[in-house]
Design a protein around this nucleic acid. Structure first.
Lengths: 246, 246
DNA sequence: TATGGTTGTCTAGATAAATAGACAAATGAG
DNA sequence: CTCATTTGTCTATTTATCTAGACAACCATA
């Protein structure tokens, strides 16, 4: 039994909200009615007002809707699966699960390569790189915020291409990279920074999945190093070893 | 700039603790001194007592140590890399990064297969499965808590073998599975449940990486479905496509 | 239309978190 | 030893959060 804890720095109503999301909603289908506030209060051992605060938060984030006199209902919000493998690409990976994918360029600049970037791209420490900050969305919902780095001597114009196409794959194609594959992906989880809260439209305390990835061209030369933050409540990462690299 | 937020259900001292972990400690080396409490309070725009509460929490989780008159210092705690690929195994994956690995059996039982388990293992809905609850540790630090399911008709005795060996791979080998590979791994991130807080020795509000994985034998038959929770502040998941399956 | 069940709103009091200020205790350097 | 710097402890006040209870508003349906 998952007992709630006090004096932990996390308000009870927020713990209740997390519990409802995890244990109550997990066994429910879209548009199903939740137990009444009074029953939830009883089940979690808290006051009804605390449950109401939790429900208000879940309603604000779009998970639930409360209707006076009728009850509180689960909205339809499935978690997208984002595939990660040798041929990881944002747009094609979500193809089956969403109607529209957009990539928006927030900013770009050319800077001396930070140490971890130079290492990942196998560039000398003095090299310059192009840094892109982007936000990607599926069906209008922001899915990920990413920062990507490219060798400036080879991909100086990538920002302009990305601004036009909204796609890394398309931008690289214009610059002569007909194909590339994912070399490594490291995955961490953290609390979202306030900047990412804003970019991804999350509520405070939300979790992001952070991936750090290296892509290589067909010659095995690293061409992109990227750090992406995914809204953990909207997406899961899927590693499928069944489909071998084409 | 990462501004702290109020009325979010997350206490300020906890937000400060997260900020210190992320932005202050990230650029520091082991045993380095942190800025003084007064300076941190000034930097984050909160009272010194709030910073002290944050430091107390980080000290309790082992990240820092405070010494009266001298300052507060960063403890040595690197994040382990847990590789995920076609040949994912707990013990061998952490071999280079730790001295000892242990696997402890918490409980086991034979139950009718829950729907998602039956689906993953390609069993009929009426099938029975063995459910193992385990905790794995590296060098004494708990790394992951896992729940695993096996076809009861094929692996009835796996609990006993695991209790003896502390290893899934070794237990399966005793039951005639000489080799197996990882078929799929889905990754999510969540707040740790109070049970996992306990099992993994985490402080409230901590994040876990949740993996749901299917392993298949050499004939392609699913043999294990598992749900593992990793302490996100101690580990990162690494997908490396460079090493092809042997 | 009457009734039971549900969410919405209000008041009041108790507990936890945050701010403010003062001073003690330990450390290291001059 | 003296002094500036740092962490540790204490009191007091204000602001959030949580509990408790009552009742209104709305809905479905008998």
């Amino acid at each position: 039994m998952t007992t709630l804890q006090r004096r932990t720095g996390i308000a009870l109503w927020r713990q209740v909200a997390d519990q409802i999301r995890q244990s109550v909603l997990s066994g429910m289908t879209a548009n199903e009615r939740l137990p009444a506030e009074a029953e939830l209060a009883n089940r979690f051992g808290v006051n009804r007002h605390t449950v109401r605060a939790a429900i208000a938060a879940l309603e604000k984030e779009g998970t639930l809707r409360a209707e006076q006199g009728r009850g509180t209902f689960l909205n339809d919000r499935r978690r997208l699966q984002y595939p990660i493998g040798p041929r990881t690409r944002f747009s094609s990976g979500l193809k089956d699960q969403s109607q529209t994918r957009t990539g928006k360029l927030l900013s770009s600049r050319t800077i001396p390569a930070p140490p971890r970037v130079a290492e990942a791209l196998e560039l000398p420490k003095t090299a310059e790189v192009v840094e892109l900050s982007t936000v990607s969305a599926a069906d209008g919902d922001p899915i990920s915020a990413a920062t990507s780095w490219f060798d400036a001597s080879r991909f100086a114009a990538i920002a302009e291409h990305y601004a036009e196409t909204g796609s890394i794959t398309a931008s690289l194609a214009r610059l002569g990279v007909d194909d590339y594959t994912r070399q490594t992906t490291a995955i961490e989880a953290r609390h979202a920074s306030s900047e990412d809260l804003d970019l991804l439209g999350l509520s405070p305390g939300a979790i992001v999945l952070l991936t750090r990835s290296v892509d290589v061209d067909s010659a095995g030369q690293p061409i992109q190093y990227g750090e992406s933050r995914f809204a953990a409540d909207r997406i899961e990462l899927l590693i499928d070893n069944r489909a071998p690299a084409a």
